[in-house]
Design a protein around this nucleic acid. Structure first.
Lengths: 183, 183
DNA sequence: TCTTGCTATGCAACGAGTTGCATAGCAAGA
DNA sequence: TCTTGCTATGCAACTCGTTGCATAGCAAGA
């Protein structure tokens, strides 16, 4: 129910095609709301029928035409009324936590394999954190001098940074615990 | 695809009925993997057909019979092979982050409403953190003296605590940012 | 006595999300 | 020249997850 709203926010920040939205979801918005291009195309079509967005066919000579979407006043109204609705509690699904508890029922080999997995997983989170920090330096070089939209984007990015740092610290705790099992 | 595995872990820790599993998912396992009773009943049935678990009908005189499930050797094998598979990156879906970015396209009223929402949301996370800390004191009073299973459960719980503390700190950052917009 | 709430399981319908595949032309490099 | 990869959109089939409803008896309190 909320993909629509994430799309509205993204299109208000910058109009664009389904394809462009899909790429943004891989980067910026996708940090806190994932979606594939399939979902996005399907939802965009429904949103256009409902009058939340309008698509404009743009021929590009050679390449397939693209439909660039922008938000209508109806769409804006939908968004603002959603903004005033209660925030739903997040549904956390952390596969690694299940695996950690599950490894109690595996042997030393399984525990060794999990340690290797956690280390690999740790590297990917380290990479994500670096990407966030680079983006922060690039997009917000002077945090004291930002407009309203940028300040809001910045505080969301700081949330991403805090999340990654927390995960890394916890993964260290996990590794210490796992290696300490066969003391 | 992973609900099955969360159920296997939960049933290995303690066999039980679909109903009991649903309650555990509201508490312990549900911290990092949510599921409703509907999902659990459906998946349990499929798991029994596939031979991962066996159900034993237990009459209780008066109340409806319950089916208590436990994990078969097949189920254990399924679990251990899943434990050795790569950890999938988590799909983060954080509605509040979308709303924060969206509030750039709303007026001062909308921003005031969001501040109230964030405060309400903060209280619920404070409650969750307290519940975790109480559980930690109750279940792990002497952290130096735990068996393997308890040490693994403890490190997962510490992850939950770290997550809630991170969220609370970030929400304070969000509130400062939001109230500072109309300086 | 009547209502509320708990244990215990389940159907049916729907909506959300994933996966595989298909089309189609252009650009860049091996 | 051939392959790979990118832009750009979409169908079809499937699985996952949610919501509303239904049944049924017991226990506890108003």
């Amino acid at each position: 129910m909320a993909l629509e709203h994430a799309i509205l926010v993204s299109l208000l920040e910058q109009p664009g095609s389904g394809y462009e939205l899909a790429r943004r979801f891989e980067r910026s918005i996708g940090r806190f709301w994932t979606a594939t291009h399939q979902q996005i195309y399907r939802v965009l079509k429904r949103m256009e029928i409902d009058g939340w967005v309008v698509g404009e066919e743009i021929g590009q000579g050679g390449r397939p035409d693209k439909r660039s979407y922008s938000v209508t006043t109806v769409g804006r109204t939908v968004l603002t009324s959603w903004l005033r609705a209660p925030v739903q509690p997040e549904a956390i699904r952390h596969e690694l936590a299940v695996k950690i508890r599950g490894v109690a029922f595996d042997d030393a080999d399984g525990r060794a394999a999990l340690i290797a997995e956690v280390e690999r997983y740790r590297v990917s989170h380290e990479t994500t954190l670096e990407r966030y920090l680079n983006g922060e330096h690039r997009d917000f070089p002077d945090p004291r001098n930002l407009n309203l939209q940028q300040r809001l984007q910045h505080v969301v990015l700081r949330g991403g940074v805090a999340y990654e740092q927390m995960v890394l610290a916890w993964l260290d705790d996990v590794l210490t615990t796992l290696t300490g099992l066969d003391h």
